[in-house]
């Protein structure tokens, strides 16, 4: 089996994987990082979004071997100790989550949007999140949270 090495949330990790192993399977099953979720089998729902070399990626669309040598950030890597990342804090403040299942993917997608756009309009947020499905919130509070989180990220720079 091929061996892959990568950085996950700042830590060097390596593992032997089958060729068919997906990045999300490596994270969840081999590395025990279960914060990244799997909500579908057709790459539609976005619950599994992580950052690969700074870009948001559905980790169910990527083979683990393709991530060899990459720098991965998952939802577990955003907060500093007990201090939430500004986007996480905004989701809490604006009630942008209910059951929490889509939340890791939503937050990771939102963080990338905020990197490009520190003051996104409602329309821009809704378009950006088109690849992340939430069944609980109706997106209303997620949109508010992402707008507030983007501003807070810009202010924290």
């Amino acid at each position: 089996m091929p061996k892959v090495s990568m950085t996950v949330n700042g830590k060097n990790v390596s593992a032997e994987v089958e060729g068919r192993t997906l990045l999300v399977q490596l994270l969840r099953e081999k590395l025990g990082m279960t914060g990244t979720h799997v909500g579908c089998d057709t790459s539609q729902c976005g619950a599994c979004v992580v950052h690969v070399d700074g870009k948001s990626v559905k980790s169910c669309t990527m083979l683990a071997v393709q991530a060899d040598g990459a720098k991965i950030t998952t939802i577990e890597g955003l907060a500093t100790g007990n201090d939430l990342h500004p986007m996480q804090a905004a989701f809490k403040e604006h009630h942008g989550l209910q059951c929490g299942f889509c939340t890791p993917g939503m937050v990771m997608s939102a963080v990338e949007l905020a990197k490009h756009n520190s003051n996104p309009s409602e329309h821009e947020v809704r378009e950006w999140l088109e690849g992340n499905i939430c069944r609980c919130t109706g997106y209303h509070n997620i949109v508010k949270a992402v707008q507030a989180g983007a501003k807070a990220m810009a202010a924290a720079k």
Binding site: E29, T34, G35, E76, L84, Q88, K92, H95, P104
Partner: peptide, 21 residues
Amino acid sequence: VKRKEDFRFLTGRGNYTDDLA
């Protein structure tokens, strides 16, 4: 009141059935 449960969900520490090993 802001939700008590949010911290674990926002930091990837939720404990869903498929997370169990």
